[in-house]
């Protein structure tokens, strides 16, 4: 007989879908159990005790009844560890935050605890909540870090990055490494030297350094495309694409300073 147990853990909300009249089905990325689906009964009632804690990107302490073999657990309590409310205060931070939760939701297996990835996500959202400039830098950084945690660390070697001396160099989609144009890595894709250098910083440096990196809008676009191509090559269809076109629409209409082009 499957034993019912009570789990108390920190979690970040990845997704909330309305269910029935007033409930929600919530996908949580929990510290202890990994990605898990819970039913939050009555969550949409104005006086629900869950309050705002079940919004995507919320960092919360949850209690749920856990039964193995069940696809949806029952959420019993949820309270903010941190509300990250400033993160929800502007379009650029919202869009980067949503891309991060979408990515984690897409790449994590159910009930596969990944405490390092959990820590990365919390750190990233925290940073997003406190940064006003260059918030777009978080996006390539988080993607490459997560890839590394899932076993596909980009093989970026300093010497090879420095060997890129011309206008252009190569990124290998197979190993995520940067190469000069006369090298012959597997699945090469061409890119500008500045984009490859910025890519290398995002892949190797710590978050503080990455957040200090100044990228021109064109370079940022190129870096984002390189990272996307690398992850898509590694994770195939698991790499999420849904929010991308929406965010492109938002940015197209946006004033300078919105979204990825924020610097």
């Amino acid at each position: 007989m499957a034993q019912r147990s009570i789990v108390r853990t920190k979690a970040v909300v990845l997704r909330s879908i309305d269910y029935g009249e007033t409930s929600q089905i919530v996908t949580l990325f929990t510290q202890k159990k990994g990605k898990i689906g819970v039913m939050a009964k009555g969550a949409r009632r104005p006086k629900s005790s869950f309050g705002a804690t079940l919004q995507p990107m919320a960092y919360t302490q949850v209690v749920f009844y856990y039964k193995p073999a069940r696809t949806l657990q029952t959420l019993s309590e949820s309270s903010h560890v941190q509300s990250f409310h400033r993160l929800r205060g502007s379009l650029p931070t919202i869009t980067v935050g949503l891309r991060i939760v979408e990515l984690v939701d897409a790449l994590m297996e159910k009930e596969d605890p990944q405490p390092a990835a959990f820590g990365l996500m919390v750190r990233a959202l925290h940073r997003l909540n406190h940064s006003e400039v260059r918030v777009g830098n978080l996006w390539p950084f988080v993607q490459l870090q997560l890839a590394q945690m899932l076993g596909v660390a980009p093989a970026v070697e300093r010497a090879r990055v420095e060997a890129v001396t011309g206008e252009e160099g190569l990124l290998s989609l197979a190993d995520g490494g940067v190469y000069p144009t006369d090298a012959t890595p597997e699945r090469p894709t061409r890119a500008s030297r500045s984009a490859l250098r910025a890519y290398a910083v995002c892949a190797r440096a710590d978050l503080d350094t990455v957040m200090r990196l100044d990228m021109a809008p064109a370079v940022r676009r190129e870096v984002n495309a390189l990272v996307r191509d690398f992850l898509r090559y590694q994770f195939d269809d698991a790499y999420p694409d849904r929010s991308r076109s929406v965010i492109a629409q938002i940015e197209r209409a946006g004033a300078p300073g919105s979204g990825q082009s924020h610097s």
């Binding site: 949503l98 939760v101 979408e102």
Partner: peptide, 11 residues
């Protein structure tokens, strides 16, 4: 409403 996670944009 605009919901990037659901693929719903301004358009």
């Amino acid at each position: 409403v605009i919901s990037p996670l659901d693929g719903v944009g301004p358009d």
